[in-house]
Amino acid sequence: MGTEEEKMSCYADIPVSSDEEVCSIIGKAVVDLSITGQPVNKATLGLKLLAMADQDQDDERILLYWIARRAISQPHKFADARF
């Protein structure tokens, strides 16, 4: 693992196009929750993203799910790391 600063610095290395992918992943999770009649909040989104990551085999996409979960749970840290 590493310090919180080291973890956050990894965001700076992700291309801007990945921001769009993270937003798309979050959007898909919201739609999936809505379709199944589940409430949409931080907790349910986090669990849905975790489930989506468990079903994916692509390491880069799994990282994007992790980033999406982090962005939802701690948006201020995500924003600070991106700008």
Rank of each mutant, 00 (worst) to 15 (best):
D58T: 09
A43V: 12
V40A: 06
L45P: 05
D59I: 13
E60V: 09
E21C: 00
C10R: 14
Y11Q: 04
L64F: 03
D80F: 08
P75E: 05
S73E: 14
V30W: 01
W66R: 09
W66N: 06
S18E: 14
M52W: 02
R61M: 14
I26Q: 06
A51V: 03
M8A: 13
R61E: 02
S34A: 11
P75N: 05
L50K: 14
V22A: 08
P39C: 02
S73K: 10
P39A: 09
N41I: 03
E60S: 10
A29F: 07
N41T: 04
S17L: 12
A71H: 07
C10S: 14
E21H: 01
P75H: 04
G27A: 14
D58E: 15
I72M: 09
S17E: 15
V30I: 15
I72H: 05
I25Q: 01
T44C: 05
M8W: 10
A79R: 11
V22Y: 06
V31H: 10
E60Y: 09
M8G: 00
P75T: 07
I35W: 00
D54H: 05
A81Q: 08
I26N: 02
K77Y: 03
R69A: 12
I26F: 02
M8S: 09
D56F: 03
C23G: 07
D58I: 08
M52F: 06
I72S: 08
V16K: 14
